[in-house]
Design a protein around this nucleic acid. Structure first.
Lengths: 104, 104
DNA sequence: TATATTTGCAACCGATTAGTTTCATAATAA
DNA sequence: TTATTATGAAACTAATCGGTTGCAAATATA
């Protein structure tokens, strides 16, 4: 079972879950209300996010609040670092402009 | 067929391909030498990267040089933007420190 | 021309994915 | 105690994924 941040954010539902709990910690039930899938399906997504430490749980009675571990998101940022100079490069900008004109 | 940048970078081989062509445009054959898979398998990865515009091809005779479209990488950076304040937040840093101590 | 090289595509295969339904457990409420 | 509620886990399924082999087309070389 491959379980890393990149595989975790590949799914659009999981990205949405991450976006939601970034604003506010939430329970699985509360999260499920935002999607057109079952509560169990959302729970499976949360499990994947837990396994690669993108979320942390905080038990409160029978409810479990899931928090975002933003530091894990930083791992993706770190990988992007090697390309950052490239998209800021003026030659790359020009190349992009030419490409855009070509497709029009 | 879901085909977006996030799904494209989920596979470690594809991330390696992206890393390689970021340094220098390469042909599929040259790329395949870096992996323990067949040339065709690498070609399939390139196809996926092409379909979501992460790479662009430049034909030269019978060879095809694949270039990185760094601007597409920027899309990921844009998504990360919403979390950037969080991991830079000193409270998040403290939370992370406490979590580290707890697991030791 | 005949041959070798570079590449993409199709068909196939086993493993994984994202969803479902059903069930068990633990905490709260009547 | 007896529901009710919140949750995770198990079993199953259709679709997708990442790999393979074999083949066809186009270009370069002998």
């Amino acid at each position: 079972m491959r379980r890393d941040v990149f595989q975790a954010i590949a799914d659009p539902t999981r990205r949405a879950i991450i976006g939601l709990i970034a604003l506010q910690a939430m329970t699985p039930n509360a999260l499920a209300e935002h999607f057109h899938t079952s509560r169990q399906a959302v729970s499976k997504h949360i499990k994947i996010l837990s396994e690669c430490e993108i979320v942390r749980q905080e038990q409160q009675g029978r409810e479990i609040y899931y928090h975002l571990n933003a530091n894990k998101m930083q791992e993706i940022d770190k990988w992007l670092e090697q390309f950052r100079k490239m998209w800021e490069d003026r030659y790359n900008q020009l190349d992009n402009l030419l490409q855009t004109l070509k497709t029009k």
